[in-house]
């Protein structure tokens, strides 16, 4: 299973004016790995799907900002 975000460590200079962010992240949603959608994938119920934005569980990748993640204890 692929993770839906990746991280990297940018170069940190001793002369950087702002406190360095050691780890940078970017989003890699599931569709990047799918190719043609395979048949018989798992589905949400119709009412769940209307809220999620997709009926296919495999494509569901909600994005939260750091504030929301801290509040709800979501792991990065």
């Amino acid at each position: 299973m692929n993770t839906h975000h990746k991280t990297y460590n940018p170069y940190v200079s001793p002369f950087d004016p702002c406190p360095p962010i050691q780890v940078k992240t970017y989003s890699t949603p599931p569709h990047l790995y799918m190719g043609y959608q395979p048949p018989n994938l798992q589905q949400f119920t119709p009412s769940e799907a209307l809220r999620a934005g997709t009926i296919w569980k495999a494509f569901y990748d909600p994005y939260y900002n750091t504030l929301e993640m801290a509040k709800e204890g979501i792991q990065t």
């Binding site: 569709h31 959608q37 990748d61 939260y64």
Partner: peptide
């Protein structure tokens, strides 16, 4: 607002998938 923005972002993912297909 974020709840609605998350829905819209998910739709972009699905659209990108369909264009790739």
């Amino acid at each position: 607002i974020n709840d609605t923005l998350r829905f819209l972002r998910e739709r972009e993912i699905i659209h990108a998938q369909r264009f790739r297909e």
